[in-house]
Amino acid sequence: MAADVWTALFIAILAAFTGYEVISRVPVLLHTPLMSGSNFIHGIVLVGGIVALGFATTPLEEAIGLLAVIMGAMNVTGGYVVTERILAMFDRSKRPGSHP
């Protein structure tokens, strides 16, 4: 296996512990926004789609690569807007003055 893949494996192990630690004390209230937010973060798949399409050579590869870019872009924008809309509500209800 190429050295780069080993390096990536070490990085992945550290990232796994980071992901676990970072959200280990999350209140139930934030479960939905957090799921939505992490849904947005795996939208990084768009970058992979761009690379796949950018180096595609045959029409079949291009077609599948285009599909990857479209779906990845939907993941990114949809994930962001949904999360932002959910969190915007929490924000408003906490703003000083909104308490009667």
Partner: peptide
């Protein structure tokens, strides 16, 4: 991996 780990815990 971040999402995989955080999502599994969630």
């Amino acid at each position: 991996t971040l999402v995989g780990a955080a999502g599994s815990l969630l």
